[in-house]
Computed example of a mutant assay.
Amino acid sequence: MSHTLDASEFTAIRVEEREDRLHAILNRPEVRNAIDATMVAELHAVCAHLEQTPKILILSGTEVEGRDGTTKGLFASGADIGQLRERRRDDALRGINSGLFDRIHTLPMPVIAAIDGVALGGGAELAWAADFRIATPSLKLGQPETGLGITAAAGAQWRLKELVGEPVALELLLTGRILDAQESLELKLVTELHEPAELIDAAHALADRIAKQDPLAVRISKKVFHMPREAHPHVDDLAQAILFESEAKFDRMQAFLDRKKK
């Protein structure tokens, strides 16, 4: 039986939940969705729920009013600089954002980041923690930390290298260059571009494609995919041994054979 998360007391994110997925909407438009302690705590609560009740997670931002009075999409502008300025050595060693983003990355079911507009600093690192990233043409994606006298310490140092290779990762980390949508698509940092009005529907369409698969096979495939190289092929064999005994494997394969007979 699927349980739902009680998010009635949340103030930094909004939650929309279905039987097979949960949509978490970052919702601090007054500070450009800066990631603060409240948002971190509420995202930890989302993770705790999804660890107990595995579902696909969709992460998205909200709309903000630009300086010109128009409404624009925004994923997350990074950590709250006001809070960040006051953090000291012991705060860094606690790994406030890095611990959360790692928890998101290791959730049982896939994570989809639907990025409209800006994802900078910690906002970009939150996006790197997802399994899939889709975006809008207004995307601005990057790591400006060195310009603020700090380093990108919530995953970008190693996830970017895995995603785009060392030369591009170093350029983004050491020059603070901000990528636009087309560059991000060419680098495969995002895999789809959609107009803002269509972005969330596109995220749900991707979730639909995942949800059509066997949930246990998806969970095990995700876990095996992220195993270190030295664990393969042994872990693959163990994973397949588990799935070979699952009821869904017999049912799905029989259904495939029955369709072929028609």
Rank of each mutant, 00 (worst) to 15 (best):
A202P: 04
H3F: 12
R103E: 10
K262N: 12
Q240Y: 14
R259C: 01
A152P: 02
D90A: 15
T146W: 05
Q213H: 07
G82P: 02
P29C: 07
L93H: 13
E245I: 05
A241N: 12
V168D: 08
T191V: 05
G99P: 07
R252I: 11
P144F: 03
G176Q: 11
P137S: 09
I210V: 14
A152R: 00
S8K: 11
D237F: 13
V15I: 11
A152E: 08
D214A: 13
A203H: 09
L170Q: 14
A127C: 10
L257A: 13
R89C: 02
L100C: 07
R88V: 13
G147T: 07
A231K: 11
L160K: 06
H232E: 11
R209S: 13
V40Y: 06
W128K: 04
P29Q: 11
L187V: 03
L170G: 04
L74S: 04
I242C: 13
T151Y: 14
E192M: 11
D131W: 09
T191N: 04
V31W: 00
P29V: 05
E192T: 12
I104Q: 00
L148C: 07
L243S: 02
L160P: 08
A92N: 05
G61P: 03
S77A: 14
Q240C: 05
T4H: 10
G155V: 06
T4M: 10
T62D: 07
L84R: 10
T71S: 14
G122T: 02
I115T: 09
F256D: 14
G117K: 02
S77Y: 04
A79I: 07
E9C: 11
E183Y: 09
D251Y: 13
P233A: 13
R229G: 11
